[in-house]
Design a protein around this nucleic acid. Structure first.
Length: 84
DNA sequence: TAGTTGACCGGAA
DNA sequence: ATTCCGGCCAACT
């Protein structure tokens, strides 16, 4: 039995290149569509290169926050053509 | 065990 | 259009 945290990490790690998922979408895929806040908290607590958290953005299309800086996150997304 | 926190979302002013 | 407030749920202390 994996915790919600592990499940979210697994889903985020499965996000294909050039694709982006919203926090809510990830939370829903993890089993709790209303735990969008928890998803963010999980990521900052489990940041590792296997988890492309820069592909997880807000539902509004904004990048949200990032442990290394939003500019860096946006740059990566643009490099993958995941966003405008 | 209970309380606080938060990389969010949605609605209201 | 932007800004404020409340809610929701899991992790952390």
């Amino acid at each position: 039995m994996q915790s919600f945290k592990d499940r979210v990490l697994e889903i985020v790690a499965k996000i294909p290149k050039g694709k982006v998922m919203t926090y809510k979408q990830v939370a829903q895929s993890a089993g709790s569509p209303r735990a969008c806040r928890v998803v963010g908290s999980i990521m900052k607590s489990n940041f590792n290169p296997k988890i492309p958290c820069h592909r997880v953005i807000r539902i509004d299309g904004k990048v949200g926050e990032y442990n290394r800086g939003r500019a860096e996150k946006i740059r990566k997304l643009r490099a993958e053509e995941a966003i405008k």
